[in-house]
Design a protein around this nucleic acid. Sequence first.
DNA 1: GTGAAAGCGCTAACAC
DNA 2: GTGTTAGCGCTTTCAC
Lengths: 341, 341
Amino acid sequence: MARTTLQDVARTAGVSLATVDRVLNRRPGVHAETAERVQQAITQLKYRPDRFAARLARGREHRFQFLLPTGSNAFMEALAERVRVTAEYVADERVRIGVTHVDVFDGDVLAAALDRLQGEVDGVAVVALDHPSVREAIDELVATGVTVVTLVSDAPRSRRAHYIGIDNAAGGRTAASLLGRFVAGRPGKVGLIAGSMALRDHIERQIGFEQVIARDFPSLTLLPVREGRDDDDRVEGLASALLRENPDLVGIYNVGAGNGGIVAALEQNGRARDVVFIAHELTPFSRRHLIRGTIDAIINQDPGHEARSATRLLIAERENTPYDAGQERIRIDIFIRDNVP
Amino acid sequence: MARTTLQDVARTAGVSLATVDRVLNRRPGVHAETAERVQQAITQLKYRPDRFAARLARGREHRFQFLLPTGSNAFMEALAERVRVTAEYVADERVRIGVTHVDVFDGDVLAAALDRLQGEVDGVAVVALDHPSVREAIDELVATGVTVVTLVSDAPRSRRAHYIGIDNAAGGRTAASLLGRFVAGRPGKVGLIAGSMALRDHIERQIGFEQVIARDFPSLTLLPVREGRDDDDRVEGLASALLRENPDLVGIYNVGAGNGGIVAALEQNGRARDVVFIAHELTPFSRRHLIRGTIDAIINQDPGHEARSATRLLIAERENTPYDAGQERIRIDIFIRDNVP
DNA sequence: GTGAAAGCGCTAACAC
DNA sequence: GTGTTAGCGCTTTCAC
């Protein structure tokens, strides 16, 4: 029971290797009837291509480009690092990964960066933005035959092949449930700090959070959202004000980056232990304060998983091979002091 | 900048392909000096083997066997199913995976099953047991050149190449922290139900749990452990008794299987909402009751991840290729109603 | 439209 | 001890 090869298919279809290859890879130049016969042979023999032989024979490598945000956000730095590690691993497998840093907060700049990739690469993984120019640029890339996936932040109505990231509304709901239960029935105010209300993922988290607080925790009052711009200093100012103006503050949810600011404000006011603080993204800093107890829980998405998943999906798309949806789903990780890696 | 091939190495070392192949794969029959020269060429040219070409040329497939417990535990069934799916995926890649079901609760039976694998396979993934016969059987397999990894449950002092599973003590601590915080300061009793005190993972979970309850939640009193043997009916009896004898019961932690019994007892006594119930393993059943609110949190290990990880590690060991430790670490997942997949 | 044939980079017989 | 050589299963020119 040796495995069926292209040869076997060619033989039973009564054609040559080249022809089978053509129909298999949907290349033109095959008579419809011949193609039909080949297809039958394929299904009859249950032929499954040998990806290893194919990649070897193809010779050409896959050229993928990752477009990540500039700036020193710890999560994005970790993501960039994991992309580098992944690149290193797959370099042996005829996959070349490049990384470009762009200002993703500006839709037009990001779109221009995407445009520049035309003809240069086979696949793109981009931390996107829900912006018309970006959507347009993605669709154009796709039209020229480039495979595009979005990473961490989606461009929802574009023609990207996959979105690799968490369901942010569910992330917000998760934060709310944990915060609500951790305050242990104490009534009071809850503060919400976002990076920017222009970021779709932040809005989605906020909406999910508000929904659950309103529905499940009537004794909690949600204060108006404040924008921290993912900046420690600015966030610290907001958190301090929150604490000053609301003596009955029982919880804080930080939707974006800038956890350092909240930790500082909490510690300065001696409220580190009694205010429940839910943060996003596991970093060396957030990990330390989770273990110390200032942060009560961290909602995380695994950047290593995201980098690998994007790469695997790009490869699968290019080689037209199946993938395991369960493996590619990005989990909403909950970390408390005890299960943090 | 084409990639360096074995040819390049052979040329710069002034030897033939075959000789390079010999030193690369540590096969005998090469003069020490020649080997040295080849090694130098390899490092100098930064040669990295092409796994794809190697697997293609090797022809022989990897034969792996998974030894899983018999019996109808939902988690183990899910694991078996994920192994099947993984087997399906890697079948195209010259990896053949077989599954054997054994009574893992009996060390000697498991050891005999392991013995029977000698000469039959290249790698084994086994849900092990901390038992002398099992350790012995594993070591013997390893001695005959078989790669062995343990799955879900370890054989700690054996010569297995890897343990693929969670840190169970940390799992128990995680359960305790969640339970302690979810009871929201209400003082009272906490019940602990284990499958069997002969299972190392159950003991470890229990110890972790007790540790954290004692240290962090002084208002909670832990009742003596009861053995439910992973059986719904038996567990239901224990849970009912727990509720009857302790009107001030505020929480239950089920270390093993049999969640159905606890749900039933809780519902019959009308205590589904006020008793905090922490369970292990996400199954269709536990998922449903998590969403309904009877189960407050589920501590999970992802069987799909475990099946894939075991397979990847076996392949990496056999082909002597590197692997990504971050990717292979099995997470202690926390699922609450909002982040459950 | 279709086929023949030359590799891709490696392994494994088999010579020497 | 070391080298030669024939593939592994596929893709890709280049003929026809």
